[in-house]
């Protein structure tokens, strides 16, 4: 897969998302001349602690996409067991398959070249609703989520409020 093919594939996805937006997020580029760096705005999923929030995140695609996964990083502050404090998203489908660096993940849950911005974001939105306790990226958030839920809720609510202020 050449760099040209990668950029064509990403352009196609961007055009498709502009034409038929998917509920729950909107997508665009950080810099309109660089198809490999996307900015997405995720709407906090209804009936979750994140409801009402607007969370901005960046996706960095490698030139080898779709053979290799992009990296995803929240720009808006967010408190979640599977998102590092610096915003890096840690979900299995963004991990490359192969020799078991992450022993607890099945190959089927790892990166596949059929993943698109849409399927990645659907996974991320479902992760917001349903944190994965087994592989926390933010250990403090995971501990709170398990052991002191009211405090976890309070921190998330603060992020939601802050995200609303940043967006307005």
């Amino acid at each position: 897969m050449s760099e040209l093919q990668s950029s064509l594939l990403l352009k196609k996805q961007l055009a498709e998302l502009n034409k038929n937006p998917v509920e729950g997020f909107s997508a665009g580029l950080i810099d309109e001349n660089d198809i490999f760096r996307w900015e997405v705005l995720i709407i906090g999923p209804p009936d979750t602690l994140y409801e009402g929030g607007f969370f901005k995140a960046h996706l960095y695609f490698p030139k080898e996409y779709p053979l290799r996964p992009p990296r995803m990083k929240f720009v808006t502050e967010i408190w979640h067991p599977n998102i590092e404090k610096n915003g890096d998203v840690c979900i299995s489908i963004l991990h490359e398959p192969g020799d078991d660096k992450w022993g607890y993940e099945k190959a089927s849950e790892r990166w596949l070249p059929v993943h698109t911005v849409e399927t990645i974001l659907i996974s991320v939105i479902s992760m917001l609703a349903d944190p994965n306790d087994e592989s926390p990226a933010n250990v403090d958030a995971a501990k709170e989520w398990r052991e002191s839920y009211p405090e976890f809720k309070r921190k998330v609510a603060r992020c939601v409020r802050k995200s609303q202020e940043e967006c307005s």
Binding site: M1, L67, G98
Partner: peptide, 20 residues
């Protein structure tokens, strides 16, 4: 052929059904 061969050289799974 070139799309799947590039992937199989990295991982011997079907990208659609994940069958090894």
């Amino acid at each position: 052929v070139h799309c799947i061969d590039d992937w199989l050289m990295r991982s011997l799974t079907c990208p659609s059904c994940m069958e090894p």
